[in-house]
Amino acid sequence: MLAELLTQVTAIIVVLLVGFVPVCIGRRRLRATRREWRDRMREAAPVAGVVLVVLLANRFTRQRLPDISWAIDWNLTPTFYAIEGEAIIWFQQFASPLVTQYFSFVYIYGYVFILVFPVIAYFALSDTRPLRELLSAYALNYLIGLFLYLLVIAYGPRNIMPTAIETVLYDFRPQYQYLTQEVNHNTNVFPSLHTSLSATIAIFAYRTRDEYPIWFAVAVPLAASIAVSTMYLGIHWAIDVVAGIALAVGTVYAADRFVGRWSLSEDFGIEIDEYVDRIRRTAGMRTPADPSPSADDEYGEADGTDVEDPSSDEPSTGQRS
C-alpha cells in the first residue's frame, strides 16, 4: 500500500515538474545548468550533505522518538485545546467536496511539489547562494522541528475533536496516514513543518521574484493553501501554524547569516576535490595523472565534455561569499 502511494506521489510530482520547469525556469537557464552543473553541485554539496544527514537521522530515530517524548512527558495538547478551543472549526463553514479535494491535494502533492521545485529552480541559477540558503533553511527547519517534536507531545485537533471536523484527511483517505506516518508520528504536531517549510519557500520566492516571477506568483498562494489545509483537514492547531511561520522567519534569517560564513577548505581544512579524487582512486576509476589541476579541468577531462570558461560569475568553493 505504501509503495503504491509513493509511486502515485512520484508520478504526479514528475508530471507537475515536467510542465512547470520549462515554463518557469526558461531554456536559457537550463542550458547554462547543463554546462555548469558540476560546479554548482560542488558548491552546494556541503549543505546538501547536511540536509541529507538530518533526513537520515530522522529516518532512523523516528520509531524511537515517541518513547523519549513520552519519557519527558510534556503533553501540551490540553494547553493548546484550552487556549484555542475549537477555533479551527471556523474553516468548516467553507467545507465542500471540491474544497476538500483541493486541500487534500495541496496537503500531500502540493507540499512535495513546493519542496522539490525551488531546489531545481535555484540549482538553475548561476549564483548558488539562494540554493545553499534554501537547503540550510530546510535543514534548520527540520532540526528545530525535530527538537520540538522530541520535547513536546501534542496531538492534533482531529485527535481530540472526533466529530467536530467533517473534513479530517485520514477519515476519507485513511491510506494517506501510511504516507504521513512514514515521516511523522501523531504526537508531533507542534510546530507545523508543512507550514514552516512552505513559508520558508514563500519567503525565498519573494526574494527571487526578479529571477522567477512566475514561481513567486505560484509559491505564495500555494504556501498559504498548505498552511490552511493543515487546519482545514484537522491535522494542526492554529498555534502550530503560527509557530511554523515563526520558525520559517527565524530559519530564513539564520540561513542568511550562516551561508558563506564557513568554508570547508579554509575553516575545516577539507578539500572536497581531493576527497573526490581519493574516492575515485580507491574505486579504481580512471583518474587524471596530475591530481591537482583546477576542478573544472579535472571534470572536463574525466567526462570529455566541453567546458566553458570557468571564471564566470561563480565564487569557488574555497571563497567566502
Binding site: M1, Y170, P174, Q175, Y178, N186
Partner: peptide, 9 residues
C-alpha cells in the same frame, strides 16, 4: 494507525 486503515488492509 487506526481502525479504518486496518479494515482497508
Amino acid at each position: 494507525p487506526n481502525s479504518s486503515a486496518a479494515v482497508d488492509q
